[in-house]
Structure formats: C-alpha cells, structure tokens
C-alpha cells in the first residue's frame, strides 16, 4: 500500500484534553474493543492451532482456559464483544437509517440491551459450573 501520511492538525494528546461526550466515548471504546477483539482472534487462532499438535497439547491449552483467571477473561471478552456488537448496530443505524438525530438515545438503549445480554451470558457461563459444584 502507499506510504501512510502522518499529517496531523493536532497532537494525539488532544483526545485527552478535549471534553468527552457520549459520541466520543462510544467511538473510543469501539476502537479499543476493536483492538481487543483483534488480539483475541490472534490468540484464539494460536490456541486452536494446537489441534495440529495432537490431543495432549490441545487438551492442555483447553484446561488452561478452565482456570478461574481465564473464566474472568472470558467474561471480559464477552463484555467487549457485546459492546462492540451493540455499538456496531448503532453505527449501522446512524449510517443507514438516520440515527444521527437521536444517537445518544440509541447508545443508551443499546447499552441497556447489552447489559441484559451480558448478564444472560454470565449466567449461561457460570450456571453449569454452579450446578456442577452442587452435584
């Protein structure tokens, strides 16, 4: 690709010196979660690649993922996915369906939906574990 042009009109720190509004917060988190998801996919591909190294290697990696630390990581990953998906819907709505007129309401409505889905996800993740312990 052609050389990237680094022509800025303000320094990067301007992002932190300017007052935050809903739209800017949503965009910033969308960017950060986007990077997060990219990193996750990289890790995921790497871990799945262990399939090629035989069952013990793969099972060892999967066992690692059952540990509490990684369970918490899974929850955080889910939050990232849910945010990015919901805000993604908002962006599509703004672009195609005139959502720019009420983007803040859209943001909060979708965040409520995100929270609901998130809680459902947490329950789905941890319920089997609770049942297992009780059994």
């Amino acid at each position: 690709m052609e050389g990237i042009k680094y022509k800025w009109t303000a320094s990067f720190s301007e992002h932190f010196r300017y007052k935050f509004h809903t739209g800017m917060v949503a965009w910033a988190i969308h960017r950060i979660t986007g990077i997060g998801l990219t990193i996750f996919i990289a890790i995921h591909i790497w871990s799945i690649s262990h399939l090629g190294s035989g069952p013990e290697s793969f099972n060892a990696t999967m066992a690692l993922y059952s540990t509490p630390l990684f369970k918490i990581g899974e929850v955080m990953l889910f939050a990232v996915i849910i945010f990015h998906a919901m805000n993604g819907l908002r962006i599509i709505w703004v672009d195609f369906f005139g959502g720019a007129k009420y983007h803040k309401k859209l943001f909060w409505a979708l965040m409520v939906a995100a929270m609901v889905l998130f809680i459902m996800g947490i329950v789905a993740t941890f319920l089997p574990m609770i049942n297992l312990i009780n059994l």
């Binding site: 300017y18 007052k19 509004h21 809903t22 739209g23 800017m24 965009w27 962006i91 703004v94 672009d95 195609f96 005139g98 959502g99 720019a100 007129k101 983007h103």
Partner: peptide, 26 residues
Amino acid sequence: CHTIFNCVEACPKEINVTDHITMLRR
C-alpha cells in the same frame, strides 16, 4: 467521518452536522 459526534456538541447553531454527513452517504 467516524460518527464521533463532537461536531454536533460543538455547533453553536445546534446543527446536527453528523446527520448531514450521513445524509450525504445515503
């Protein structure tokens, strides 16, 4: 435009600038 909406907050005449940019896209 990444629909950041800072322009809408800044506009002293309360114009929804992002709305117009998305209208251009459509």
